[in-house]
Simulated assay, not measured.
Amino acid sequence: MPTIRKKGEGQYHVQIRKRGYPTQTKTFTKEVDAKRWATIIESEMERGVFVSRTEAEATLVKDVLQRFASEVLPTKRSEQSDKSRIKTLIEEFGNYRLASLNSTQIAKFRDQRLKVVGPQSVIHEINLLNRVLKTASMDWGIALPGGLPTEQVRKPIKPRGRDRRVAELEIAKILEATESLELRTIVTLAVETGMRRNEIASLVWDEIDLKNQTAHLPKTKTDVPRTVPLSRAAVKALNAFGVKEDGRVFALQAESMSQAFERACEPHRANIVGARFHDLRHEATSRLFEKGLNVMEVAAITGHKTLDMLKRYTHLRAEDLAKKIG
């Protein structure tokens, strides 16, 4: 049975001792609250479902968010973007106790954020919060009595993926419009290999084997290294750019690549409407399938981890499919 003692004016101290469980104590200002808490805890112990709330009640959400940012994020490729998301989550949930965080609060956050940013951004934020809470529970020993509240919230519906393909004529116009040999080489590599922007930016000569037509990517978005085959056109472009013994292949950073690409597409240059640098990855993925490669072969080149994501990047032309079926 729980023991409830009155200590001073308006202080009710509860102690629950049961074999097999650590002693639980808590102080309340109202006797009715003390009795209610004692009944709940004792019932959970009787049913064998009790989880200590002590550390979760003593820990603020911002404490685990900040710890995750300092201990876990530096090992991730998404560190910079996730740091911004951590800041948003701290502003919203930082002063809550872990034990009090619930799905209703997260659902309210979801609905408010959807008025400011797109569904995919909200999905990233909720997924990050879920990873933080899971790390706190599994690796840091902070038990969450009600489980992960993030797993009890309906995610926003993902926006329909872009289906923009960059036609061969458009690519030719972009290559002709830019005066930068570096950008021409980057665009060629992007459409010939399907590499992500950050992967191209991180290329080093030591990881490129032109003889065997491969480029090794030790760090990728999915944290899974892969080796990408280089087409003859890609090898030719790298040779024309100027092969070096070591160092980075390109001086441009990832964001600068997109900016340079958009400038080349401007009306007074290539005059290409609605194209983004990332569309080159869509184009490259679609071309690989059109060349007859199977799903596993394409995924090995592009680095897509799931069939669903691979499908979002593949936009086969109906007229090409019509030729195949006769």
Rank of each mutant, 00 (worst) to 15 (best):
G8R: 09
L148C: 00
R17I: 08
R154D: 15
L169Y: 04
K108V: 12
L181T: 06
E283I: 00
H278S: 10
D209S: 11
N102V: 04
A322C: 12
S258P: 04
P149E: 10
G20I: 02
L230F: 14
T178I: 06
N294K: 12
A56H: 07
T188Q: 05
T314S: 14
A240N: 14
M309K: 07
A38E: 05
P2N: 04
E266N: 04
L252V: 00
M309V: 15
F241N: 07
D111Q: 03
R53M: 03
R17H: 03
A58T: 07
R154H: 04
K62L: 10
D63W: 00
V298D: 09
A240C: 07
T222H: 02
A270S: 13
I174W: 03
A237M: 12
T3L: 14
L169R: 10
M45W: 01
E170V: 06
K324P: 04
P225L: 08
G118N: 13
N212H: 15
W140Y: 11
I157S: 15
L288T: 02
A136K: 11
S100G: 13
R67A: 00
T23R: 11
G194S: 09
R77E: 13
L101I: 09
V235N: 11
K108C: 10
E42L: 12
S286I: 04
L89K: 06
G20S: 02
E290M: 13
E266K: 14
I86Q: 00
L144W: 02
E46L: 09
K323D: 14
